[in-house]
């Protein structure tokens, strides 16, 4: 009984999330106000989180909301507000170059759809409430340090280094002035003067 209900509700959620994701993505492309674009992007990310949850990965779904739709987008909206970007009525929505540029992603998308439709499904639908991507399944696999394990803990550690490098790179590039470097503030003043 429950199975048949799943068969109706699952696709229903899938199409709803997909519709939201696609519409919001179109919104990101077509809106003239950067802030509206950011809000549309949050919509895309939230809908993606819903899709991940449907695929049996609640952990990834929660992270998607917390990190992408939450932290990163808050930062982005914050930056947009600081820069006080107003509605842009000057730039044409589409010019010849952007329409030509549209062909490439459309081509990639059509090939993707084609090969994905042609491929055999690797896994069947999730069986009887087993969540493959639950924290309980994921954590032992991620931190399995035995020799026979997948060794993902190694990648986890390396990603720690990666984040450190990202911070160092960002500080080096964005610090208002490195010690004894007056030229940066000078150019900023010049930019404000325009």
């Amino acid at each position: 009984m429950l199975g048949s209900l799943d068969a109706i509700i699952g696709p229903l959620y899938f199409w709803a999330f997909s519709l939201v994701a696609v519409c919001c993505a179109l919104g990101v492309l077509t809106t003239r106000h950067p802030l509206h674009g950011a809000v549309c992007l949050i919509g895309v990310l939230l809908a993606m989180a819903g899709l991940y949850a449907l695929l049996g990965s609640p952990y990834v779904a929660v992270l998607q909301v917390l990190v992408y739709a939450g932290a990163i987008m808050v930062l982005m909206v914050f930056v947009l507000m600081v820069l006080n970007q107003a509605r842009d009525d000057h730039t044409p929505r589409f010019d010849l170059l952007s329409i030509a540029g549209l062909l490439l992603p459309l081509g990639v998308a059509s090939v993707s759809v084609n090969v994905l439709a042609g491929a055999n499904a690797l896994h069947g639908p999730a069986q009887g409430g087993a969540l493959e991507g639950s924290v309980a399944n994921l954590a032992p696999r991620l931190f399995d340090t035995t020799a026979a394990g997948p060794g993902y803990y190694l990648l986890f550690e390396l990603i720690g280094v990666l984040l450190l490098v990202a911070i160092v790179a960002a500080v080096l590039l964005a610090k208002r002035s490195l010690a004894g470097e007056p030229s940066v503030t000078k150019t900023e003043d010049a930019a404000h003067g325009h």
């Binding site: 390396l158 990666l162 490098v165 160092v168 790179a169 960002a170 080096l172 590039l173 030229s183």
Partner: peptide
């Protein structure tokens, strides 16, 4: 790839003025 790229991005932009 990312570890190499992120470090090199910052190095490319060293002369930020």
């Amino acid at each position: 790839v990312e570890l190499a790229s992120l470090a090199v991005y910052a190095l490319v932009g060293l002369r930020r003025q």
